[in-house]
Design a protein around this nucleic acid. Sequence first.
DNA 1: AAGATTCCCAACCGCGCGAGG
DNA 2: ACCTCGCGCGGTTGGGAATCT
Length: 271
Amino acid sequence: MGRQPCCDKLGVKKGPWTVEEDKKLINFILTNGHCCWRALPKLAGLRRCGKSCRLRWTNYLRPDLKRGLLSHDEEQLVIDLHAHLGNKWSKIASRLPGRTDNEIKNHWNTHIKKKLIKMGIDPMTHQPLNQEPSNTDPSKTISSNPDDISKEPKTASTKTLDIISGTTTTEDESSSTVTDQNSSMDNENHLLDNNYNDDELFSYLWSDETTKADASLGDSNYGAVGGTLYDSNNISTTVSDLPIWSPEGINDKDWMFLDYCQDFGVHDFGF
DNA sequence: AAGATTCCCAACCGCGCGAGG
DNA sequence: ACCTCGCGCGGTTGGGAATCT
């Protein structure tokens, strides 16, 4: 019987989104939410498949998205998370508020990967390139289940590095655990010594609490709900502090402005 | 200035998973 | 237990932008 295609191929537009399409999508979601992506294009008057709409929204139009290059801290966090999780971009992205899995994936492939290789680090194993990896699957370095890494002691040698300063750190695999690493947090070269330490990091990473910014998106009334956004230094800002973003608040002038700003996310329009 | 090459990233594709019937 | 459906994830690609020759 085969799998039903996500959309009927005939009459479904592909390729870059136009400003008009963006307007329709934004307007519809802000008015109605996105209860069902499959039905959304029809309801919103778009000749796109639901999947395409979802991607456009999550990767580009969501009001809480940050734009621009990843900060140093964000890059460090991505590297560390990748060392533990492997290519679990969505999991990594979920720990970087305002960043999407696609964005992180692209950044990894175009920037971080090259930096690591240049430094002689295998981007997949996070081991020196000329060294035979002890375990080639990064997701299995700590645990076979990436979700369980907070529960297990770190037994493998984990080499971390600061790609900006170029320093590397090798943790002592023989006795180090997540817990007793806490006692050596004053090691200046320690993993994520910029803003993070393992204990805080992992308790943050593996807490059940999703980012409030994301949570706020579960509600169709995005602009009005409370939530937390973070700037590049992880300094939080409550959504309620931000300008109200609602379809009613958009006038023709705003939409004209959109025409000139199609390469930016919704929040860049100043709503 | 113009063509060639490389880089970058938005968007697409196909698969896996979970929920619900 | 099985099937279908919808969503989300990770890998890949196409084409515009930037850089090089």
